[in-house]
Amino acid sequence: MGANIDLIFKIAGVGILTAVLHSLLKHAGKEDQAQLATLAGVAIVLMWVIDLLGKLFDQVKTVFRLF
């Protein structure tokens, strides 16, 4: 339970950081780098979430004896 709350805060932190970076780069005139920064943020978060999803499906498979 504890570990998962840390993950949620980490994801939210990356999200806010990406948003700030995006607007920072936009005001600095580097529009394309802003898009790349957003993409990088989303990719990192997606990696964590997919890892968590894999864990969930494995546990569900063992508990419900699926497959």
């Binding site: 998962n4 949620i8 994801i11 978060v45 979430v49 864990k55 969930l56």
Partner: peptide
Amino acid sequence: LLVSVAAGIA
């Protein structure tokens, strides 16, 4: 959306 998915999974 990803935060809500992660929270649901947790």
